[in-house]
Design a protein around this nucleic acid. Structure first.
Length: 496
RNA sequence: GGUCCUGUGGCCGAGCGGCUAGGCAGAGCUCUGCAAAAGCUUCUACAGCGGUUCGAAUCCGCUCGGGACCUCCA
């Protein structure tokens, strides 16, 4: 098996990945809060973990990939007194909260499909795990790590730290500093410590999302669902937890506190955080209003877009950088990616039809043979090095060169030997399709080609070259189409 | 203000002590009826100033830019 190294945010260094249970990997990734459309920044994070998931499977692990849907508990605004995001949208659009959830969950799934993401093994939702969350709150109260105040329950940071823990270790925060910088927020009065965070919130009567609990009507705190669902499906300790960099604090910090508080052990072995997608150097985010929706991208319908870009162009574009670097989103970069992607995919199509031809008169070109072998090895090395897809793609372009040379008859297959030839062919396809998840996009403008054919048809007809005319008709017919040769015009239709 | 990241050639983006990353764009060549495609060759780099070192995009210091987080964000 390959030796994969992962940058662990918790230890701030690259570590050799060793699963808790041999050959099995438990991976949890924070999914979206479904109160709005997912944007391209979100897509980047899910793409990072899609490639990781694919790679782990490729190198032989049995992976359980859990990615949640947060459909309650995420509050609007800064304070703990903010409205629930789903509830707010429901009111705004005059819909049932579950309609909001359904609508944006559907959108999320559409987007994932668009970018060719593998579905996770389990996709649990927060509202579907209300019992588990209430039990967790009870448990934390029993353990003395949480307290009730006025119908809400807060996690007690001081108690947690007194028990020998270190709240803030993931994000590198020092409690005193945090305290000094705490903003004046509503609801602070209820807390023993301003840093304590809600694990259960009392719901005002008009609040449209609420559940009965031992502490009255309310709803769970934002961080709790991930703790409960990851523990339920992956166990109290699991291998990889991923998410965007911006979730490190407070979300993931709170997850560590909750998980450790509940079970006494660290919930996660490797924390992975993907960096932000930026626009003109600034983070793409919903609140800054500089986010791009996938739909805007593929239609080109956005003031900052000069043209439309296909989903695979975007996938290629994002994979050309390493996930821990910020990536800037621009027309020039996207256009360059489009060309690169197309060149690679043309090679992919061509490579599938390449056949080995034995020829004893051709000597083995050891240098070329070695370069191919080295690039294949290099592809693995790149991904093993904290999922460096940028370097992996560079290797792919070396392989592409050889695929093209063989295709163009500039290189005899036998010059690299049958083994290397078959390996080149198999790996090239496997790397692109199965690991990077890039696929050929079928042309969307077949109509233009058809019109060109009809043009030819018209010409030949005019010149009375009926053998050519019949040839074109046969071609159409073979594709379940027929040419409609009418008095006023020539058109085509699907054969009925 | 605190914590942390970052500045690479025309553009994007790897590398993080010695070995041409790569893509896109530009130039030349081969091939071609002409193109396109493909292959070959090639030009532009490591923000600035010091230091460490036989050797520094790569380590250290300072200066100047850019950004993230500090209870909305992937």
């Amino acid at each position: 098996m390959q030796t994969l190294k992962i940058y662990n945010s918790l230890t701030r260094q690259k570590e050799v990945f060793e699963p808790i249970v041999a050959n099995h990997v438990g991976m949890y990734v924070c999914g979206p809060t479904v109160y709005n459309f997912v944007h391209l920044g979100n897509v980047r994070t899910f793409m990072t973990f899609d490639v990781l998931y694919r790679y782990l499977i490729h190198i032989g692990y049995k992976v359980r990939y859990v990615r949640n849907i947060t459909d309650v508990g995420h509050l609007v605004g800064d304070g703990d007194e903010g409205e629930d995001k789903i509830g707010k949208m429901a009111k705004l659009e005059q819909l049932e909260p579950m309609e909001i959830v359904q609508r944006y969950t559907n959108d999320f799934h559409d987007v994932l499909k668009l970018f060719n993401f593998l579905p996770p093994s389990i996709e649990p939702s927060a509202t579907g795990h209300m019992v588990e969350q209430i039990e967790a709150v009870k448990d934390l109260i029993n353990k003395g790590l949480a307290y009730e105040a006025n119908g809400s329950v807060y996690f007690d940071i001081n108690k947690y730290n007194e028990a020998g823990n270190n709240y803030g270790k993931l994000s590198g925060r020092i409690l005193e500093d945090l305290l000094n910088e705490t903003r004046e927020l509503d609801g602070q009065a209820e807390k023993r410590n301003p840093l304590d965070f809600a694990i259960w919130k009392k719901a005002a009567p008009e609040h449209i999302m609420q559940w009965p609990s031992p502490w009255g009507m309310g709803f769970p705190g934002w961080h709790l669902e991930c703790t409960c669902m990851s523990a339920k499906y992956l166990g109290k300790q699991f291998d990889i937890h991923g998410g965007g960099m911006d979730l490190k604090f407070p979300h993931h910090e709170c997850e560590i506190a909750q998980g450790t508080g509940l079970t006494g052990v660290e919930p996660v072995k490797y924390w992975m955080h993907s960096n932000m997608l930026t626009v003109n150097g600034q983070k793409m985010s919903k609140s800054l209003g500089n986010s791009f929706l996938p739909a805007e991208l593929i239609t080109g319908n956005h003031p900052l877009l000069e043209q439309a870009y296909s989903p695979m162009t975007v996938r290629f574009f994002m994979l050309q950088s390493q996930y821990r670097s910020t990536l800037d989103f621009s027309n020039d970069a996207l256009k360059a990616a489009q060309k690169g992607y197309r060149r690679l995919i043309n090679g992919l199509r061509v490579s599938k039809n390449l056949e080995f031809v034995a020829n004893d008169e051709v000597a083995i070109d050891e240098k070329k043979k070695a370069e191919i072998e080295k690039s294949i090895e290099g592809f693995y090395e790149a991904l093993n090095d904290d999922l460096n897809t940028a370097v992996a793609i560079a290797q792919l372009f070396t392989l592409l060169k050889y695929v093209n040379m063989i295709y163009m008859n500039q290189l005899q297959p036998s010059a690299i030997g049958e083994d290397t030839f078959e390996k080149l062919k198999a790996k090239f396809v496997d790397f692109i399709e199965n690991i990077l998840g890039l696929e050929e996009e079928k042309p969307t403008n077949d109509e233009a080609v058809i019109q060109g054919m009809l043009e030819l048809y018209r010409d030949h007809k005019a010149k009375q070259e009926y053998d050519k005319v019949d040839q074109i008709r046969t071609y159409f017919k073979a594709n379940s189409m027929s040419i409609k040769d009418m008095k006023h015009k020539i058109d085509w239709a699907w054969e009925e």
